[in-house]
C-alpha cells in the first residue's frame, strides 16, 4: 500500500474510533508517528486527507462502473443513475467518518470542502456522458446554455449527497427514491422538451 492510502486509512480509523477529528494536523502527525507511519511529505493539512478520501470513493465508483458489463448498454440517464447508486454504495463504507466530520462543519458538509476535489472529476465525467447523449439525441442541443449542464448536474449531486447524509430510512431507501426522482427531473429538463418546440415555434413566427 502506498503512503497516501496508508495515511487515509489511519485517518479514517482515528476519526471513527474517537468520533472526533484530531485537534490539529500536528496532533495527527504525532499519532501517525506513534503508529510507525511516515508522512513523507504526502500531506500538509487534514482537509487534504479528507478530500482525498472522498475523491477515492468516487474514482473507485467510476472504476466499478467501467467494469460492469450492463453499464455500456445504458442510456445517458441510466449511466448517471448507475453512477449515483454506485457512489452512494462506496460512500456508505465511510458513512460514519462523514457523519463525524459533518458534526464539525458549520456550513453543510457537501457544499463545503469535502466534495471539492470530486467536482472537477465529476464534471469531466458528466461532460463526456452529455456529449454522448447529444449524439444520440437524448440531450437537447441548446447552444447557449448547454455549457451549464455539468453545473446543473453538480447541484443535483450535492442535493443527493446531502439528502443521503440526513436519511434515516431503512437501508437508505428514501435516498434511492430521491436519486430516481432527482435524475428523472433533471433529465426531463435536459431532454428535448416543450421549451425546445416552443422556442422553435417562436423563432419561426418572428423570422417571417
Amino acid at each position: 500500500m502506498d503512503t497516501p492510502s496508508q495515511i487515509q486509512l489511519a485517518y479514517r480509523a482515528y476519526v471513527e474510533d474517537r468520533c472526533k477529528k484530531p485537534e490539529s494536523f500536528e496532533a495527527f502527525s504525532a499519532y501517525l508517528k506513534s503508529q510507525d507511519i511516515e508522512l513523507k511529505g504526502s500531506y500538509h493539512s487534514l482537509t487534504r486527507i479528507e478530500r482525498d478520501i472522498v475523491l477515492g470513493t468516487f474514482t473507485e465508483s467510476l472504476h466499478r462502473l467501467e467494469n460492469a458489463e450492463e453499464y455500456l448498454e445504458y442510456s445517458t440517464r441510466e449511466k448517471v443513475l448507475a453512477c449515483y447508486y454506485t457512489w452512494l454504495e462506496e460512500l456508505g463504507e465511510i458513512r460514519t467518518f462523514l457523519k463525524v466530520l459533518s458534526q464539525h462543519s458549520m456550513i453543510s458538509l457537501t457544499t463545503e470542502r469535502f466534495l471539492k476535489s470530486v467536482e472537477p472529476v465529476f464534471k469531466a465525467y458528466i461532460e463526456d456522458l452529455l456529449n454522448e447523449g447529444s449524439d444520440t439525441g437524448e440531450i437537447a442541443d441548446r447552444k447557449i446554455i448547454e455549457s451549464r449542464y455539468p453545473a446543473v448536474l453538480w447541484y443535483n449531486t450535492r442535493f443527493i449527497i446531502q439528502y443521503w447524509l440526513h436519511d434515516d430510512s431503512q437501508d437508505y431507501e428514501r435516498s434511492d427514491a430521491a436519486v430516481e426522482k432527482a435524475v428523472n427531473f433533471v433529465f426531463d429538463l435536459l431532454a428535448p422538451n416543450l421549451l425546445d418546440s416552443g422556442f422553435d415555434f417562436f423563432r419561426f413566427l418572428i423570422s417571417k
Binding site: 450492463e70 445504458y74 443513475l81 447508486y85 434511492d176 430516481e180 435524475v183 428523472n184
Partner: peptide, 9 residues
C-alpha cells in the same frame, strides 16, 4: 424502477 435501481436493489 430504472434499470440501475433494479440492479442496485
Amino acid at each position: 424502477l430504472s434499470g440501475p435501481l433494479v440492479m442496485k436493489t
